[in-house]
Design a protein around this nucleic acid. Structure first.
Length: 564
RNA sequence: GAGCUCAUAGUUCAACGGAUAGAAUAAAUCCCUUCUAAGGAUUAGAUGGCAGUUCGAUUCUGCCUGAGCUCACCA
């Protein structure tokens, strides 16, 4: 990338001037009038060199090594140095992209070039709701962009299949056991356990006897008691089958599905070993981690009844995750922010257990809640927005508003939902509104896909393949074309930035800007009716735009359509 | 009570310590004899308050106000 070359040259320039210890910033400026790359290093050097920033900038400009990729260097007002890349460099890149080849720069989080992304984590016996949808969209795109920059990525998913909520549900199921046989479709089964969960939850609060029974069921699940085992397993299977359908629908999958029940035993063993080593300690009948020394909270790993808590089980899970697939550089947990304390502590305990294995290798990627206008979702209130239901609603809206077939509407609906989550930063709370939140116009997936389809439509009408020959730099590149060439050139850097900061929204924003610029270009400049040379250039731009949009959306986990 | 996070147009969101704070949406007005109008153009609108650091602050620091989350046997 030219960015690297400019940086290297700036480094050399600094050495010539006699300064070394300055970190050089170099980014595309917000305003394209200021060139392709801009640095404010001269401003930062004012103090060190005790000179006017503009003078320093001049000095840098004059000492910048001769090269064949910079068109011009400008110095502006307070002391910015702006670089303009030669158009033929941009053309070369766009030409390579027009053949659907994408070479992203590599970026690794460690020497193993292998990471795990743990995401989705729904609980069985519960609905897969919009919150999970945001999680899975985020996790899926993280997987894809990490792969794009050269990592082997393991997709994992830790699904809760034990706990009080499941006992509540099974209590309800037990009370209406006779109905089970009449349930035929998966949909009916899921609705049934949903209702039974509500029933169990109410009983738990209103009826002391029921509460005792639910606690007993909870213990039986942990003990794998034959009395409850068959129902637990059957209903769990319904949930897992249902989750699989959702994963498929949103174009996601996993290499490894972990279940919480798998780590009950091993978690307890690991916690006890940690107790012997003095990492954990006994307190009021429980085994806890005293975080005070480290400025952390104190949390329970094995409760006073002798059961491992979520924390305890996490130790078993971590051990497995870090051994099953060889050495990992990083394990990225895509989880909501209220678990920050939980992760800080489990990560610390793991580090104390085996520093080499765990230290700096666990990462909590915080993604925020999807809240409803009325407040937080809760199954008790019955205001859960189920993932499938939401996608169906959007699909219906699309079918009503536009002429397209079912298959296209399905892809566009899933795309709309995913994109509306991914275009905002992961750490922003989404205030969900059915009418406004999932948009199919403006900055939306259909807008991007429409732009792609437009490109395809033009390309399909072309009677000869003008893209096979190499375009040489001509002076006829107009401003609209140049803007697009420069924008296209930024794609790999944007992807790199997105991985670097775990911020897929950078890609979404970039794709929107690219589409927007293309649509403006399209409006003003005829492509197929232009003279031969111009037409070749414009077709090249069209092809490259289409490829970048398609690839960019793919990195976001979003499919495109060819016609709409 | 302690700690963490957040506060930007009417609304929902962007912005790496940088240049004129970007969009979408809602409103008004234009553009289909031209490659898909699910498009494009124009107009109007915002950094909670007070200090500080800096050549430069939405971004960093402190205080204030307001919201959310967490702080031992749930997951």
């Amino acid at each position: 990338m030219i960015k690297e070359q400019i940086l290297k040259n700036l480094q050399k320039t600094l050495e010539k001037i006699g300064e070394k210890e300055v970190d050089i910033d170099l980014q595309p400026p917000t305003n394209a009038d200021f060139g392709d790359y801009s640095t404010s290093m001269a401003l930062k050097l004012t103090k060190l060199l005790k000179k006017n920033p503009v003078t320093i900038a001049e000095e840098i400009k004059n000492n910048f090594p001769k090269n064949d990729f910079i068109e011009k260097i400008d110095i502006i007002k307070p002391g910015f140095i702006n670089f303009w890349i030669k158009p033929h460099q941009l053309l070369d890149y766009v030409q390579s992209v027009s053949t659907e080849k994408f070479d992203f720069p590599h970026f690794h989080l460690g020497k193993n070039e292998k990471v795990m992304v743990e995401f989705a984590h729904p609980n069985t016996h519960k609905l897969f709701h919009i919150g999970h949808l945001r999680n899975i969209s985020t996790g899926e795109t993280m997987v894809r962009i990490l792969e794009a920059v050269g990592n082997k990525v393991i997709r994992s998913n830790y699904q809760g299949d034990v706990g009080l909520h499941i006992a509540k549900c099974l209590y309800g199921v037990q009370s209406e056991k006779s109905k089970i046989k009449s349930l035929k479709t998966l949909q009916e089964k899921i609705e049934f356990i949903g209702k039974m969960y509500t029933k169990g939850t109410k009983a738990y609060e209103d009826d002391i006897k029921a509460k005792e029974e639910i606690n007993r069921i909870n213990k039986m699940i942990y003990d794998q008691d034959q009395e409850i085992l068959p129902v637990w397993q059957e209903t769990k299977k319904w949930s897992l089958d249902y989750f699989n359908e959702v994963y498929k629908r949103v174009d996601s999958h996993f290499d490894r599905l972990y279940l919480e029940s798998e780590f009950y035993k091993r978690g307890m063993e690991v916690a006890n070993e940690a107790l012997k080593k003095g990492i954990l300690e006994k307190s009021q009948g429980a085994i806890v981690f005293n975080g005070k020394k480290y400025g952390l909270d104190t949390r329970v790993f094995i409760n006073s009844l002798g059961f491992p808590t979520y924390e305890g089980k996490e130790l078993g899970l971590a051990e497995k995750e870090f051994s099953e697939f060889g050495e990992l550089d990083k394990n990225i947990h895509v989880v909501t922010p209220e678990q920050t304390s939980f992760f800080k502590i489990t990560f610390k305990v793991e580090e104390l257990i085996d520093e080499k294995k765990y230290k700096n290798k666990q990462h909590h990627l915080i993604y925020e809640w999807v809240k409803l206008k009325e407040g937080k979702m809760s199954s008790r209130e019955g205001n859960i927005i189920e993932a499938n239901w939401l996608i169906d609603q959007i699909k219906e809206k699309i079918l009503k508003q536009f002429k397209c077939n079912d298959k296209t509407a399905e892809i566009l609906a899933v795309a709309s939902v995913k994109y509306s989550f991914l275009k905002t930063s992961t750490q922003t709370i989404i205030h969900f509104d059915m009418e406004e939140s999932i948009t199919v116009d403006g900055n939306s997936a259909p807008y991007l896909i429409y732009t792609y389809v437009r490109c395809q439509s033009v390309l399909n009408k072309d009677d000869y393949n003008s893209l096979t020959r190499k375009l040489v730099n001509s002076n006829i590149i107009n401003n609209d074309e140049l803007i697009l060439l420069r924008k296209l050139y930024q794609f790999p850097e944007v992807v790199l930035k997105a991985v670097h900061e775990f911020s897929p929204n950078f890609i979404a924003t970039y794709l929107y800007e690219l589409s927007s610029q293309f649509n403006l270009f399209y409006q003003k400049n005829p492509i197929l009716k232009a003279d031969k040379k111009t037409k070749e250039l414009r077709l090249l731009i069209t092809k490259a735009t289409a490829n970048v949009i398609k690839k960019g959306l793919e990195l976001l986990g979003i499919k495109t359509v060819e016609k709409m």
